[in-house]
């Protein structure tokens, strides 16, 4: 389980300037550390990582490409700050939890009501840190653009 996966690794700077379509970007995610990574992802998959996922550059192409790749959510022990905001804004679910007990190939299910990840293959329930109320609202609208179009403001009481 790797720590400190930075946004340069998620999507290299050489692509973010060349390609603007997130689905095209999705074909190149993690290319510099695993050339075959993009081909291995199936729709609804979970990406599981260690501490400080998404550190480094503020490029929004990183969460956009991950979302476009069909990932259901990213699970990590912690997330870097700018990446966390960007993911919320584009409607990509990030779940902060103890990922030590999740192995490659485990079958996972997300329970947003109870703030838990079910590891079906092991019969485990792993709690994740509840998403703040404003974040939940933004995610449920599919991102901050849809949220803002609906409410025309950023208040947390809406």
């Amino acid at each position: 389980m790797q720590n400190n996966i930075n946004t340069d690794y998620v999507i290299s700077g050489r692509y973010k300037f060349r390609i603007q379509d997130p689905r095209e970007l999705a074909k190149h995610i993690f290319e510099d550390i695993d050339a075959d990574f993009a081909r291995k992802i199936k729709k609804g998959d979970f990406l599981v990582s260690g501490e400080n996922f998404g550190c480094g550059s503020s490029r929004e192409q990183a969460p956009l490409a991950l979302k476009a790749s069909g990932l259901r959510a990213v699970l990590a022990k912690s997330f870097a700050r700018i990446f966390y905001r960007n993911a919320l804004n584009v409607g990509l679910y990030l779940l902060e939890c103890n990922t030590n007990y999740i192995d490659d190939g485990d079958e996972l299910a997300l329970d947003l009501e109870r703030n838990t990840i079910k590891v079906l293959s092991k019969g485990l329930n792993i709690p994740f840190k509840p998403i703040p109320p404003l974040g939940k609202k933004i995610l449920s609208e599919g991102g901050v653009i849809e949220y803002y179009k609906k409410y025309r403001r950023l208040g947390i009481e809406v």
């Binding site: 929004e60 700018i82 960007n86 804004n89 901050v144 403001r153 950023l154 947390i156």
Partner: peptide
């Protein structure tokens, strides 16, 4: 502080953003 592009766009439209 650094933010992403959409975060910036929201500030550009509203003059505001949220911070923890």
């Amino acid at each position: 502080t650094g933010v992403g592009s959409t975060d910036l766009a929201v500030a550009l439209a509203s003059g505001k953003n949220w911070f923890k």
